[in-house]
Design a protein around this nucleic acid. Structure first.
Lengths: 404, 404
DNA sequence: TCCAATATCCTCGTACTGCGAGGATAAGAG
DNA sequence: CTCTTATCCTCGCAGTACGAGGATATTGGA
């Protein structure tokens, strides 16, 4: 078995606790009895575990409303003094952030438009939000995840066509703190959100595609993204599925990017390249004239054909469409479906993976960031740290619920 | 944490044992002291574990030749009565099989040409080999892995251009037995072998590409292949990187397949489509005339460009070339390198993943099959089964080496 | 030849996690 | 008020892992 071999001693004891917290996020509002059933915990262990986690401020138990006969159970939830994470999404025109506790529900979602798109200025705003969260939550703040509309490479933002940034160091966000920083591509994080809590729940292997300016995406396996060696995987927009005559800003030729967004629509309509391809595309989608419809057909065909090709690569259970991809398909569903089918290898055509619209809309990346940060916080190593912080572990026994 | 939640009770106790056996395969001929160091086992635990595994016929310990001062340690190896697996590789013109023990070294490699390519006849031959192994090894035979030059989909062979098969049920190989059958695409398994024991050792994320008839490949993360939902991932040959005017037998247009193998060479040379594209390509590689060289340049460019595109998708640490891919690159290294570079997104060009020739040559798929089968056999669940078979688990203590 | 140094092995007491039986508890149903 | 049902808590037991301390086997040098 390859991969990093972990030091067992300090982590093994947190394995089950980590599973419990993971279950809590997958089953918000779940009861303790359901937990014991799902995880196949012996009744005694359920008592001990919940008691321990309660003592560590990781879990809160509130009496559940009785539902039929039998002794009533308790509802599990995040502890009011438990760890929280900060999730940030830096987008083209604005940025947003939210705090999330162990149940995964983001709260205090706040946002602002960029005053200027200068990297230092934008990151300064994010840093201030982080400092505010640190002031408010103190030691409870355990991780920061940042979704960016651009390519991440070894923790740096290698490039962003959307923001016009190149090689920006993101570690300044947490410099001087011990907070773990988890930067990620927005499309990848949106894919994570779809796979965990969105339209691809239940799919083991899921492909998410998101059109904004160009196209990004993510392939997830059981909700974990394939990020590659440096976190730069999923650059589907730079697959040469398109017209080789077209030169992409990325330096390659025939990039799919150029065939599926507002720039493609403008080209097909014989109009000048739009400065805001996303807004332009939304506007073309609202037009009803035949020329616009023809352009949309062409783009939907390019989208469908490329998705078929990516299904050949990844063999997903489900494909989800985010951003403009959903309305672009909706504008020409028949053309899309035909192109998709024709892009598939024959044996896929019997039962092609369903292509469904994303469930999280614009919130995908933010939610994905929260998920990734919480994954980090509920890892065995992080739980061991948290436990050390709050001074030793919960005592055995004495598991009586002292009520909320 | 997503993914199938496993029943802990019966498997937890085999976790460390599974790690030990995995270590054994990664460190053939390793000593017990090295094991304890690498896995950070307490000295007492190392004694108990090796003793237990020895009692279960999973491990053999032989006195190590003393190397310096200090009490000599023992060399760990597979037990002579330990479990074995059967690895099979079904190729275009022939098929081969081998037996492997827990150290992963295949032995008794045997092969034969196909008398006929009829699926039933070929599978009959494999089945007879399997029966022979069952007769010889009895209960010690614990898994069978079969590499096939074709697309696997939910355990069936969906299609094979190489063999000319369509929708062949492979479960007949083990029907009537309780042996687990692990079918796999040959390129994927060769990629596993490169990642674990070949040219991509040490690379976390590795991309393997193999040209024979068309092109197949695998993306592996820490030696585990991304197989997709049905095992059909990695069909890079059917990416529309090529000329849209060309119709592929798979039903799609512009498949990369058609640009990188013997069929492409024949097309560029104005010769009729070869019945044996692989042999034809080898022959063109041996010709020195300018026309052949031009054709090889074109194919090398198509190969390099496509690999660049796939690096954009997967972001691997290393790329390995198997089958004809290595000589095709060698025939026009400059052209290949340029096309590769131009296919990459700009930020990859600073430190592009190295493209290296595969280390296992023709043995890759067979070795990969052995690796996958041994992964299965050393899984926690399989070890629990093996232990039940040999009647209870090894006694505690009394760990003295009774010498080989 | 004998002794110190070294590296490893084995033994044993301790700690912690997890199991599962048995009884206690809190509701609804009649 | 009692029976049924579902859940919770207590408690003894089993298994894995830790780590200290001593035993053991070899080399190198006196």
């Amino acid at each position: 078995m390859p991969g990093p071999i972990r030091r067992r001693a300090e982590q093994a004891r947190w394995h089950t606790a980590s599973q419990v917290l993971a279950w809590l996020r997958e089953n918000p509002g779940g009861t303790r009895a359901a937990l014991a059933r799902d995880l196949q915990l012996a009744s005694g262990l359920a008592t001990e575990l919940t008691g321990r986690l309660r003592a560590l401020s990781l879990l809160a138990e509130t009496p559940a409303p009785p539902q039929g006969r039998g002794r009533p159970t308790t509802i599990l939830g995040p502890h009011p003094q438990g760890p929280v994470v900060l999730a940030v999404d830096v987008r083209m025109a604005d940025w947003r952030y939210a705090v999330a506790g162990l149940d995964g529900r983001p709260y205090d979602v706040t946002g602002a438009r960029h005053a200027t798109r200068d990297p230092a200025a934008v990151l300064g705003c994010v840093r201030r939000a982080l400092e505010a969260a640190r002031a408010r939550y103190g030691d409870r703040l355990r991780a920061v995840a940042v979704a960016v509309a651009g390519t991440i490479h070894d923790g740096r933002l290698a490039q962003s066509a959307t923001l016009g940034w190149r090689d920006v160091d993101l570690t300044v966000l947490t410099a001087g703190t011990t907070l773990p920083l988890l930067p990620g591509n927005d499309a990848i994080l949106a894919g994570v959100a779809e796979a965990r809590t969105g339209a691809a729940v239940g799919a083991g292997a899921a492909l998410h595609l998101m059109v904004e300016v160009g196209i990004g995406g993510a392939f997830t396996v059981y909700g974990r993204p394939a990020t590659g060696a440096h976190g730069a995987a999923g650059e589907y927009g730079h697959q040469p599925y398109g017209d080789r005559a077209l030169l992409c800003p990325c330096g390659a030729r025939g990039c799919w990017d150029l065939d599926v967004d507002g720039r493609a629509l403008a080209r097909h309509l014989g109009e000048p390249a739009p400065s805001d391809p996303r807004g332009y595309a939304r506007q073309v989608l609202d037009r009803g004239d035949p020329a616009a419809r023809r352009a949309l057909e062409t783009v939907a065909a390019a989208l469908g054909a490329g998705i078929g090709a990516l299904v050949n690569v990844h063999d997903p259970d489900t494909v989800t469409l985010g951003g403009l991809a959903a309305p672009l398909r909706a504008a020409a569903p028949g053309t899309f479906a035909r192109a998709y089918d024709q892009g598939l290898m024959a044996f896929h055509r019997g039962q092609p993976p369903p292509v469904v619209d994303a469930a999280h809309g614009d919130d995908g990346a933010l939610r994905g960031a929260a998920i990734v940060a919480l994954d980090h916080v509920t890892s065995e190593a992080a739980l061991a740290q948290w436990s050390a912080r709050s001074g030793g572990r919960g005592a055995r026994g004495s598991g009586a619920v002292v009520d909320a």
